[in-house]
Design a protein around this nucleic acid. Structure first.
Lengths: 246, 246
DNA sequence: CGATACGTTGATCCATTTCAAGATTGGTGG
DNA sequence: CCACCAATCTTGAAATGGATCAACGTATCG
């Protein structure tokens, strides 16, 4: 079996500790996916509070986890291909947030009974699944730090730096940028600010030659300035080996 | 064996799903604790980046998880007795933040080799441990929401409401308040604001009859106003049964 | 009793929100 | 192919929450 296989899960933990999995284990992981779905329009994949019996892996595109109340939408996390978006639903049974698609996405569903089987019979894989939920929590903590510490400019810079690094882990970033289907409103929702202010921040970072965000494309103009502005230290992403972009 | 036993771990998941554990499992859990330590002065229990081979459970007192850079300290999580503070260190091996004591604390250490044994032989308990790290992540998400959505007043109200509920789970809250050894500076660090502004917010909430925070004691004056101001919905804490305080 | 940490208050400045309106873009049907 | 619509992006001006600088009050404890 060539390593070109595993079409649904080949990006899971890529750039992190995926190397620690054997080919057999990678096959078992791929076998978790019972079916696959594609959405082209914005779609709520999962509703807060709903009892779930399967978890979702993002194969292609972007999804966000959001908490919405009286019209306002707060983005709690963003996902890149390879992320096991709501694996925590396996143990929590109901989620404290919604999961929504952004742009065109392809997702795979892993029934909880299959995950349960893995847990009972595959300790290495089980530990890897747990590990991936802990990476998710580590990103949450960094977001808390970012929101407590940084102003809007820094928050956007941090978000861009993080996504660049994460997409790089899964081979979806280039040397000078990446594509990102988020609107300014959505960037604002992820940075805890308003779309109007986000518009001015985007403009400012473009004009000061830090990063250009337009037409769904992010072009990093000054890598060093971006990381400084966002106080970005990728240690919390627990990447392995020499990082190309840091 | 009376339920008065388990002096170190009896509060673990209390008010959550602790009831799902058998007495035997509770005993195994207690057996994880190899030794216990007490600190009376502020102490850094764990340094960011340090490789760890044991995890820490909080038995008594308050600990904070902090990310500090150039003098500024950001509190990303607060813990109450019964919390397995850095269980995620078991799988992550090194932490992305420091763990520090606040006031007088008593903590227990669980060597990773003992946790590993549990994982290999006790699936129910293993799943419970995983579950507890997911509760931690759910609280992170709520903090992200709080920081993105609320102003300083609301953030403090939310923090107070959350701690009240969590302390109530473990029988450490009263009908009208709880004790809390945090300084205004630390409250500020947990709400992403300055100590000066926090001082004004504390004063405002006191004067508007919402909550009184002074001399290490929190007195809730208007439960309903507190929850409204903090946009507090305890669902994310995954408590079970009828909640006395909600 | 002086040291030291913590809490309180005032004045000023700046980042961000809010309200309001206009410009640009992409997609759709006639 | 153009006209139009809706979403997105952009800009301006006024109001405000919170930061910052500076100082003073007040516990608490060897």
């Amino acid at each position: 079996m060539s390593h070109q296989d595993f079409p649904y899960t080949r990006r899971f933990l890529k750039g992190r500790s995926r190397d620690a999995l054997s080919e057999r284990e990678k096959g078992l992981l791929e076998g978790l996916i019972e079916n696959v779905e594609r959405f082209t329009a914005p779609h709520t994949i999962l509703d807060r509070g709903e009892v779930v019996d399967q978890s979702t892996i993002l194969i292609e595109g972007t999804v966000a986890r959001v908490i919405q109340d009286n019209g306002k939408r707060h983005i709690i996390a963003l996902h890149v291909p390879g992320d096991f978006v709501d694996l925590h639903g396996f143990a929590l049974k109901r989620l404290d947030h919604d999961v929504v698609s952004i742009g065109t996405v392809q997702i795979g569903y892993a029934p909880h009974r299959r995950i349960q089987k893995i847990l009972e019979t595959e300790p290495t894989l089980a530990r890897m699944l747990w590990y991936s939920t802990l990476l998710d929590a580590a990103m949450h903590r960094e977001w808390i730090m970012k929101l407590e510490r940084l102003s809007a400019d820094g928050r956007l810079a941090h978000l861009v730096a993080e996504l660049w690094q994460r997409l790089n882990f899964v081979d979806l970033a280039s040397e000078n940028g990446f594509s990102l289907p988020l609107t300014q409103q959505e960037l604002a929702d992820a940075c805890g600010t308003t779309s109007i202010h986000m518009n001015r921040v985007v403009k400012k970072l473009r004009e000061t030659g830090v990063v250009d965000i337009s037409r769904g494309q992010v072009t990093v103009l000054d890598k060093k300035a971006l990381k400084a502005l966002g106080a970005f230290n990728p240690a919390y992403l627990y990447g392995q080996g020499p990082l190309k972009l840091t």
